[in-house]
Design a binder for these strands. Structure first.
Lengths: 179, 179
DNA sequence: TAAAATACGGAGGTCGCCTCCGTTTTCAAG
DNA sequence: CTTGAAAACGGAGGCGACCTCCGTATTTTA
């Protein structure tokens, strides 16, 4: 049982190589504001079809690109308190505009594509929230999803300004402490 | 001097009629989430060209559609306190998703199209903010633009949920009171 | 009523999204 | 190696939304 099933072939080399190239290209393209998939394919020197085969949905691509960040956040949630975690999360999102798209599915009930990572993030936030509620350090009428919403909104709402984000988060956190 | 300049003709009747029709159609289309300009023209029974002639930019159309609401908000700002005003504004935006686009230019430094209304809104918020700061009922590190940002973000950020908006605003307002 | 001024409308160019399928590459069996 | 089937490639092409441009139609005024 060390091999899943010897029936299947070994994955093709070009596939793996191309997938890596696409991720690389996506990372670059997403840095500069844009969410243009054709640009990603072009920058990778590959056809658009190949991109879609590797990442059937926009979210799939975002998730893959930000897998590392999402995992980090998940882990920090085990250790940090709510406030620290939210500040870290804000920080992490600040430079990576595209990351929002990776996180949004977590609270989007429409999203048909709920990845593993989305679920784990969800769990992480819920845990953080539960602890804070137990401690009584947070208003009980706020839900875990609300916390994600606030993070996303502050970074990504219309007219969001990175320079002001941390102040706004501060205000929100202060409000959160009030019974 | 009762007439500006007798040199110019009387505005054409069809123009006025069509402008009104477009506004009517836009109001309907914007109610249902969408910001589709061709749909507006179609619903008005007019060509897309006519729409663009009357409202050269998307913002121009939004501003015209929500002129009444924006004026109301401006007037309330004279009377209300900060908290009440923000709750009213939230309420007003809640049903009118498109309104966000009318308000966003207020804090968008890029926007080449700063209408009269944008400027007046700006003034209104600034006034509200100044009063609250003077009263000491608001943290001094928050700017008027921040207030607009929060309203827009709560309504319009990714994953925003109308059902949760007022709770989030409450939290924020609570935070605002803390020195 | 006719010329001049003004407004209309939609064809068509652009761009991004996504699908579909003929062609090419890779794998592994012989 | 050879070779044939499985897997992956790539981009043409359809779609929807945006916006511009200009020939045609309507209104105004004299």
């Amino acid at each position: 049982m060390s091999e899943q099933a010897p029936k299947s072939r070994k994955p093709r080399a070009d596939q793996l190589r191309n997938r890596a190239r696409l991720l690389e290209a996506a990372r670059e393209v997403f840095r500069g504001e844009g969410g243009n998939l054709e640009a990603v394919a072009r920058k990778a020197g590959l056809g658009i079809g190949t991109l879609y085969r590797n990442f059937p949905t926009r979210e799939a691509l975002f998730q893959a690109v930000y897998a590392h960040e999402v995992e980090t956040l998940e882990q920090r949630a085990q250790v940090d308190g709510l406030e620290d975690w939210m500040r870290e999360a804000l920080q992490m999102m600040a430079t990576k505009r595209g990351m929002v798209a990776a996180l949004a599915p977590v609270i989007d009930p429409e999203s048909s594509f709920i990845s593993d990572q989305s679920l784990r993030m969800r769990g992480a936030v819920a845990q953080l929230h539960a602890r804070a509620v137990a401690d009584g350090t947070v208003r009980p009428d706020v839900t875990p999803d609300d916390l994600m919403r606030v993070l996303l909104a502050i970074n990504y709402g219309p007219g969001a300004d990175p320079a002001r984000s941390s102040v706004l988060l501060d205000v929100f956190l202060a409000g959160l402490r009030s019974a």
